[in-house]
Write a protein that binds this DNA or RNA. Structure first.
Lengths: 240, 240
DNA sequence: GACAATTTTAAATGGCTAATTTAATTTACT
DNA sequence: AGTAAATTAAATTAGCCATTTAAAATTGTC
């Protein structure tokens, strides 16, 4: 009969931790079991002993990172669930920003690399964990916007807000490529300050919906539509 | 003495086109010369004959894609340079959105993969081509916001707008992973409609800056700061 | 404190992929 | 027709890694 041993649990944890780091740094393919077990301070065979194979380790590492991440930054941002919607939205934004930009966040980086080089290994896990987050955001947005707003409006506003929360992390990655000289970087160092900006910016933007379909400011800026954008593009002047 | 031949130019072009596609699909490492030359309809040796090595082909392919992309969607969005700032901003946003989300845009995808798996091969080229874009945006933002706005404010607003333009492309990638069920996708299919939303949303958000430092709506949503966030920079309030 | 299962280890196994070069052949241009 | 340019197929060269095995070490229990 199986007996759980102390040492086993310890190496299992080291492996998970190391795997999260390495997978976040290199993605599934470029991360080698050798590197991972080295950082974990164990033998290569340990991975297959404890997890069966690399793929399982990958999934488990992501799960672990996700749990850690959500625990460190609960999605309500510490705002009372009974607080008014706008305040809860502020909490959500702050939490999201803190979570994604937490330097200890491996989860985001793993997903990021998965997006660029899909392995398909996280499909189920992602579906399972991301959907509730989406529903939470949409529900909150609907509350803030009021029920006169359409489905697409709710989605567009949600996207606008989400995008602002995600981008600092992308910027950080881009900056690591060595683009942009001194003082001309997009990098966001003051996440808390930025969070305040996002909230004030977004609430003001959302308030516009209450003041009629379009603000006067918009009427002046009629979007010039280009020819190809009218009829669903016919493969923009393809030079075959 | 060297003579330029017709066939040479043709295969060179096919190679560039094929390379752009494949590099955009797979990134530098996973793209093989074999695949590229096959799609181009030439022999494997052709790459080395015409470009010397894979790396040069990579750089050239990106350059080509970038040129195509910028030509298809000029950054002013077709708005008269003498038009009022807000209108020019609308043009810039529309152009950016169209450019990034053009299904023929390889450039963006190549950079995207480069971010996840950096090769360092595009460093110079990127620096060279992206900086002017950044400066253009910042200058325009400063114009729209007026000169009472601080450096950080200008940057934050620019980031807010940029993020909204970039995200649809990221969403598309994420959706390709097969996450999110029917009708619960973040995907943006109507780019033109979304562009209008971004502009109205953002102009309203920016208008808030004129109405005092904070709108009444914000005062109610005091951000609960976490311990580690206090110390953090107070650069968000510096009116330079 | 010895036994048996659990865990760790070092070394070996097996398998796969790809850029680049060469030398021969074909093509295009004068 | 002749020659340099361009294409081709095949060979060359190079690298890297997950997993398994069998033996050694450890842990917990009786």
């Amino acid at each position: 009969m199986r007996v759980l041993r102390q040492d086993a649990a310890r190496t299992r944890h080291s492996l998970l931790a190391a795997a999260s780091e390495i997978f976040a740094e290199k993605g599934f393919r470029d991360a080698t079991i050798a590197t991972i077990s080295k950082r974990a301070g164990t033998n290569v065979a340990a991975v297959n002993y404890h997890f069966g194979d690399k793929q399982t380790l990958y999934r488990e590492a992501w799960r672990q990172s996700f749990r850690d991440s959500m625990e460190a930054h609960p999605p309500d941002g510490g705002v009372d669930p009974k607080a008014p919607p706008k305040q809860r939205l502020a909490g959500l934004v702050a939490a999201l920003l803190r979570r994604i930009n937490d330097k200890d966040n491996r989860e985001f980086h793993i997903v990021y690399r998965e997006l660029a080089n899909p392995t398909g290994l996280l499909e189920e896990v992602l579906k399972e964990e991301m959907l509730p987050l989406r529903r939470r955001i949409i529900a909150l947005m609907r509350e803030v916007l009021g029920r006169r707003s359409s489905e697409t409006q709710v989605r567009f506003y949600a996207i606008s807000i989400l995008s602002q929360c995600i981008i600092p992390a992308f910027i950080n990655m881009a900056e690591r490529l060595g683009t942009s000289p001194e003082g001309e970087s997009w990098e966001v160092t003051d996440i808390e300050g930025y969070a305040e900006h996002v909230i004030s910016f977004s609430l003001a933007g959302m308030a516009a919906i209450g003041r009629g379909t379009k603000t006067p400011a918009i009427r002046g800026t009629q979007l010039p539509r280009t020819d190809q954008s009218f009829e669903a593009q016919r493969s923009s002047t393809d030079h075959t």
